[in-house]
């Protein structure tokens, strides 16, 4: 805004002050218009994404509504749409998630901690860092092909729950590594130095402090990774999941010591999204209802897992202030 003549002259009469004030107010109004314009555009952008998802979800729920009952969860798939259920699919998904969790978490956390705390900082570790981030963006079907070659044929693990769990574990590994590193980076230098200053070794600092204080962030990454894995279809199809399974894998818990058995690992399986795909590809509309119900369940499961992640992070962060 141009300076008023009277200001330049240095003589501020009452009239010139009022006139100047009017000009300042007009300017502020003009500048604030941008706020309103952007807030509108931003809200629209937000709604575009959110409403689409919400519409999709409501549509699925409305279509699948007739099948929302316990029977749907306790029945095997069937030729008759009305009595077909998700039992083998959700048990398959759950068992695979166990394998995924047990492989991705220790490997991912160890790799993240190593990269952040132990790896020397040079061009090689930079290269690894870039590649880990890139791995998170590799299309999942590529992981499926890798798993087919490595786990199914190379290691001869077959088209089993173990293979699927390892594949998905590999798929979410970059997510776990990246979130571990981010959580570790959030720990202030002052806390680290405090631990070193009393004579702690690197391992003591890592195990007593770094891993403990980054639990919240690591857990969030793990759960978000798992909620991605549970909806993955392409790599599971690639390694050869069956689309129609009317039996359950052997139970992981046995009634004789050591009360665990591992036969289920080599069992064939199906998972929720594949069951959904299978029903969707049938011409009979009755099966489409089942597919919609499965879709709604997968979305709810994902929301539930993400919600749990947020809740756990809040609970853990509550006691940590810096």
């Amino acid at each position: 805004m141009a300076l008023h003549d009277s200001q330049i002259a240095g003589a501020l009469t009452k009239a010139s002050v009022l006139e100047n004030l009017g000009a300042v107010r007009a300017m502020i109004r003009r500048h604030k218009r941008n706020d309103i314009v952007f807030a509108g555009i931003g809200l629209l952008a937000l709604m575009l994404g959110l409403l689409t998802l919400l519409t999709l979800f409501i549509d699925l729920v409305m279509d699948g509504y007739p099948r929302f009952n316990l029977q749907f969860l306790s029945e095997f798939p069937s030729r008759r749409a009305g009595s077909a259920g998700l039992l083998s699919a959700w048990v398959g998904s759950a068992l695979i998630m166990i394998v995924t969790f047990l492989t991705a978490v220790p490997v991912g956390v160890a790799a993240g901690v190593y990269l952040e705390e132990y790896a020397p900082k040079n061009w090689f570790s930079d290269l690894i860092e870039i590649n880990v981030s890139n791995l998170a963006g590799v299309p999942s079907i590529i992981y499926g092909l890798l798993a087919l070659g490595l786990f199914v044929y190379g290691l001869d693990l077959g088209q089993s729950i173990l293979t699927a769990g390892l594949t998905l574990g590999l798929l979410i590994l970059p997510i776990v590594i990246v979130s571990t590193r981010e959580a570790i980076r959030g720990i202030p230098v002052a806390i680290r130095e405090a631990a070193y200053a009393v004579g702690a070794t690197k391992w003591q600092v890592v195990s007593d402090h770094v891993v403990k204080y980054s639990q919240g962030g690591i857990l969030t990454g793990v759960i978000i990774g798992m909620s991605r894995a549970i909806g993955e279809t392409a790599p599971i199809i690639t390694i050869g999941a069956l689309t129609f399974i009317a039996f359950l894998p052997p139970s992981p818990i046995s009634d004789v010591a050591p009360y665990l058995n591992f036969e289920w690992l080599s069992s064939s399986f199906t998972v929720l999204p594949i069951q959904m795909f299978n029903w969707l590809s049938r011409p009979d509309h009755a099966f489409h209802i089942n597919a919609a119900a499965t879709g709604a369940i997968i979305i709810m499961l994902t929301l539930l897992m993400n919600g749990t992640a947020i809740y756990l992070r809040y609970q853990i962060r509550k006691n940590i202030k810096w």
């Binding site: 009393v198 702690a200 006691n319």
Partner: peptide
């Protein structure tokens, strides 16, 4: 041993903070 510019206690209990050097 060292005392820093800004107080930097660990996000642990009072007891655990003082005992940490002994733990180490």
């Amino acid at each position: 041993s060292m005392v820093f510019q800004k107080p930097n206690p660990f996000p642990k209990t009072i007891f655990e903070n003082v005992a940490y050097g002994l733990h180490v």
